[in-house]
């Protein structure tokens, strides 16, 4: 794990760092000779790549944390609608022109989960879909009930679905491994390159909740990343003062 992380860090971090250093040093050294629009483009690139690095740092730290023995989740009762709402809000701020929508089955049970982690999971999946599908390609967040095994309470499936190029069968499992990425030389999918630690941390989050994250190919093209979470017996409501 440690080596895989170090490899992922050295590979995934160098590209955005190189872009930031290039753009920032150009502003510093040549700023006087550039016009306002050129300066704006460079500054925008610094902001964009720094945001990407921030997300990468979150994922990498989270993966290291979840890999440590005795990891404790901060579980509380959460509503799927709220988690999805928070993810959509962020995604719309980042990509205002992307068609995004949420579909939630009515009457979903509450989830007993770590909200920050599940938001990170969904956020990474949405970001992944945004980066690897055409700019006008629709992305859908879907939440539905899943029957529990035997007497177990019903679980929930949270899915992020796109209509992008999809992932070849040979890669549908490997893309969840830390630092697996497409390699054109071996016929792997170049479209999905650069997932680095992103999908690995998503799966680690699902598993830390006793669930699983899988990739399903969609009937008419595209990918559906599906996080299955086990159900929890719902708490009894309390009586309010008001």
């Amino acid at each position: 794990m440690r080596n895989a992380l170090l490899t992922a860090i050295s590979h995934d971090y160098r590209t955005p760092l190189a872009t930031i250093l290039g753009a920032a040093s150009s502003l510093q050294d040549q700023g006087q000779r550039l016009d306002a629009q050129q300066r704006g483009v460079l500054a925008g690139r610094v902001v964009q790549e720094a945001n990407h690095l921030a997300r990468l740092t979150d994922s990498t730290l989270q993966l290291a944390r979840l890999d440590a023995p005795g990891v404790v989740l901060r579980r509380d009762w959460e509503s799927a609608e709220e988690l999805v709402g928070a993810v959509l809000r962020r995604a719309r701020q980042r990509s205002p022109d992307r068609p995004l929508r949420a579909r939630l089955e009515p009457g979903l049970p509450l989830l007993h989960c770590d909200a920050m982690l599940l938001i990170q999971l969904l956020d990474n999946l949405v970001d992944n879909a945004i980066r690897h599908t055409p700019p006008d390609g629709p992305i859908e967040l879907l939440v539905r009930r899943a029957p529990g095994a035997g007497d177990a309470p019903p679980g929930v499936v949270l899915a992020v679905r796109d209509r992008g190029p999809g992932v070849p069968p040979a890669w549908r499992e490997r893309i969840f491994e830390v630092f697996q990425r497409g390699d054109t030389a071996t016929g792997a999918p170049p479209q999905r390159h650069g997932t680095g630690v992103g999908l690995a941390v998503c799966r680690a989050i699902a598993r830390a909740h006793g669930g699983e994250l899988r990739l399903q190919a969609r009937g008419h093209g595209g990918s559906s990343f599906e996080c299955h979470l086990p159900g929890a017996a719902q708490p009894a409501p309390g009586q309010a003062l008001a």
Partner: peptide, 11 residues
Amino acid sequence: AHTHDLRLYMG
């Protein structure tokens, strides 16, 4: 500690 009530009523 009744976060679940809060979720339901906020919904």
